[in-house]
Measured scan of single mutants.
Amino acid sequence: HTCEKCSTSIANQAVRIQEGRYRHPGCYTCADCGLNLKMRGHFWVGDELYCEKHAR
Rank of each mutant, 00 (worst) to 15 (best):
H1G: 06
H1Y: 14
H1A: 06
H1R: 07
T2S: 02
T2A: 02
T2R: 04
T2P: 02
T2N: 14
T2W: 04
T2V: 01
C3I: 03
C3V: 00
C3E: 00
C3L: 00
C3W: 00
E4W: 06
E4M: 13
E4H: 13
E4I: 05
K5D: 14
K5M: 10
K5C: 10
K5W: 02
K5H: 06
C6S: 05
C6K: 06
C6V: 06
C6D: 08
S7V: 08
S7F: 08
S7R: 07
T8L: 11
T8C: 08
T8K: 15
T8H: 14
T8A: 15
T8R: 15
T8P: 03
S9I: 01
S9P: 04
S9L: 01
S9D: 15
I10N: 09
I10Y: 01
I10S: 03
I10H: 01
I10T: 08
I10P: 05
I10D: 11
A11T: 11
N12G: 04
N12H: 15
N12P: 02
N12W: 01
Q13P: 07
Q13G: 13
Q13S: 09
Q13W: 00
Q13R: 01
Q13E: 14
Q13C: 07
Q13H: 01
Q13I: 01
A14Q: 05
A14R: 03
A14C: 08
A14E: 14
A14N: 11
A14S: 08
A14V: 07
A14L: 07
V15L: 06
V15D: 09
V15Q: 09
V15M: 06
V15I: 09
V15C: 05
V15T: 11
V15W: 00
R16D: 09
R16T: 14
R16W: 15
I17S: 04
I17A: 05
I17V: 09
I17N: 08
I17D: 07
Q18E: 11
Q18N: 06
Q18S: 12
Q18F: 05
Q18I: 15
E19Q: 10
E19C: 03
E19D: 04
E19V: 03
G20S: 05
G20R: 08
G20D: 05
R21G: 06
R21T: 14
Y22F: 13
Y22K: 05
Y22W: 11
Y22G: 04
R23K: 05
R23D: 03
R23N: 08
R23C: 06
H24D: 11
H24A: 05
H24L: 00
H24R: 04
H24M: 03
H24S: 06
P25Q: 12
P25A: 13
P25I: 11
P25W: 01
G26D: 15
G26A: 12
G26K: 14
G26N: 10
G26T: 14
C27Q: 06
C27L: 02
Y28P: 01
Y28G: 03
Y28Q: 06
Y28T: 13
Y28N: 05
T29S: 09
T29C: 07
T29W: 01
T29V: 05
T29D: 15
T29F: 07
T29A: 09
T29N: 08
C30S: 00
C30D: 00
C30I: 00
C30Y: 00
C30T: 02
A31S: 09
A31Q: 10
A31V: 11
A31W: 10
A31M: 12
D32W: 07
C33K: 01
C33E: 00
C33R: 00
G34T: 08
G34S: 12
G34Q: 11
G34M: 11
G34F: 07
G34C: 04
L35A: 13
L35P: 03
N36F: 07
N36W: 04
N36S: 11
N36D: 06
N36G: 09
N36K: 03
N36T: 09
L37T: 04
L37H: 01
L37V: 09
L37K: 03
L37A: 02
L37S: 02
L37Y: 04
L37N: 03
K38F: 03
K38E: 15
K38Q: 06
M39R: 12
M39E: 15
R40W: 09
R40A: 12
R40N: 15
R40E: 13
R40K: 14
R40S: 13
G41P: 11
G41S: 04
G41N: 08
G41D: 10
G41F: 06
G41L: 03
G41A: 08
H42D: 13
H42Q: 11
H42M: 08
H42P: 10
H42T: 12
H42I: 06
H42Y: 04
F43V: 04
F43I: 10
F43M: 07
F43D: 13
F43E: 10
F43A: 07
W44Q: 13
W44F: 12
W44K: 07
V45H: 15
V45L: 10
V45M: 10
V45N: 08
V45I: 15
G46C: 07
G46E: 12
G46H: 06
D47C: 11
D47M: 10
D47R: 12
D47F: 05
D47K: 12
E48C: 06
E48A: 09
L49F: 05
L49S: 05
L49M: 07
L49P: 08
L49K: 01
Y50T: 06
Y50V: 13
Y50R: 11
Y50I: 07
C51T: 00
C51H: 01
C51D: 02
C51A: 02
E52H: 04
E52N: 14
E52V: 02
E52F: 10
E52S: 05
E52Q: 09
E52M: 08
K53L: 08
K53C: 04
K53R: 09
H54L: 02
H54D: 14
H54F: 00
H54M: 00
H54P: 01
H54E: 03
A55R: 12
A55H: 02
A55V: 08
A55N: 07
A55I: 07
A55T: 11
R56L: 15
